[in-house]
Design a protein around this nucleic acid. Structure first.
Lengths: 220, 220
DNA sequence: CATTTCAGATGACGTTGTCACCTTAGCGAC
DNA sequence: GTCGCTAAGGTGACAACGTCATCTGAAATG
């Protein structure tokens, strides 16, 4: 009765969306362990087997969630970058804070963004080589889609860094900035960056980071 | 027949160790999902219920593994710090590389080190406040033990940073360095720090990081 | 030697991911 | 219109898992 009048494709799309939304809610509430395909299905108004018509399994569903989040983040950073009112360093600070903001607001979703590629037992030990292979994987493969989405974010981010430190050092400092921001976000949400014992806030750390990189980047 | 002649306490200690070792093996091989209490018990030569005499559950076992690893890492860093042949910046570089080395050599164990504190559904949303409370928790509580072990590492690490940048900025730059190193390690082991597309190695990133901090730290 | 205690064994239960199989409604061909 | 195809969704079942209540037997204690 909810999706009363709907063509077949529309109905399927609605179901898929409902599954993703329900999974996102459960993920925010109780982490990956709380995302149970049965509960997701129930919240989406379908039965246990329905998700397998849209995803290959639980992992695929979680990965699709991460892909969507990467795309959302990329859009935010793109908007930041093309804002003429902001200075280059403001854009960089903003981009880093977008990432940290996700970690703060949706910690479990954030951890899905940086999940290991191919964490199945049979896929271990291949490391980064697998990533390269997956970049050539067909569209629709959930894992490959997520990697590509994360890659598009990195490209967007790299443009900002390039504007600030020049093309020569952009990739090096870009990697450093990204890794540092991720480390700050991850340690904060896991409780390992105690603001009490270390007497620092994430924002101050980002400021210091950007300042150091601009200083080092200009003189090189 | 293996532990033929042994008092009860000795036998129990041997079993506990065998459980931890088996769990560590499985963790290295297939990640947390592959660590099944049944398989751990089988490899340790006991039955399914035995682990519950030594740990409160699966989570407790994994947490104990992380605690042991933190202690091992702390020892390594302490050895580095008290080595008179090393310069202050060499000690710092070494300490950061110890962390990254664990991430490279035992990726799944590394991710256990930085697991979220209290990731059970009923414990969410409390954030860092929970950490402070757990610091006062009784010894034997697996989660609190791990936090304390991680704290001891941070203290050891902070001494190195203090020697390099002075006590005034030690905590700020210490947090920054630690978070950055963790970000590098984590992004490398999850495949998000592509050495191809970014044309950088973790070692180069550490070098740049230490150089930037020493420059910024001295002038402040 | 009698008793307590505790490591370990065993059986059971609920939950979960996954799949094979079935049902049914939308859609095009004629 | 009707027929057949296709794919979304429903249903039952299965294996694996974490966990616990209960039992057993041997070491420890007096």
């Amino acid at each position: 009765m909810m999706q009363a009048m709907a063509t077949r494709a529309e109905s399927a799309a609605l179901t898929r969306r409902a599954l993703l939304d329900a999974a996102a809610d459960l993920l925010d509430l109780g982490g990956p362990e709380a995302v149970t395909l049965r509960e997701v299905s129930a919240r989406a108004g379908v039965t246990r087997g329905a998700p397998y018509r849209h995803f290959t399994g639980k992992d695929s569903l979680l990965t699709a969630l991460a892909t969507e989040s990467w795309e959302r983040i990329t859009d935010q950073v793109h908007t930041l970058r093309t804002d003429p009112a902001l200075s280059d360093s403001d854009k960089l600070r903003g981009a880093l804070r977008v990432l940290i903001g996700v970690g703060r607001g949706q910690p479990h979703l954030y951890q899905m963004l940086f999940r290991r590629h191919g964490h199945r037992p049979e896929e271990l030990g291949e490391g980064l080589d697998r990533v390269r292979r997956q970049l050539c994987a067909p569209a629709g493969d959930p894992a490959a889609d997520r990697i590509r989405a994360a890659g598009r974010f990195q490209e967007e981010f790299l443009i900002i860094v390039t504007d600030l430190v020049g093309e020569r050092n952009a990739r090096h400092y870009g990697a450093l900035l990204l890794a540092s921001a991720h480390g700050i976000a991850d340690m904060e949400l896991t409780g390992h960056l105690s603001t009490d014992s270390l007497r620092t806030t994430s924002d101050e750390l980002v400021d210091t980071l950007v300042r150091m990189v601009t200083d080092a980047g200009e003189t090189t």
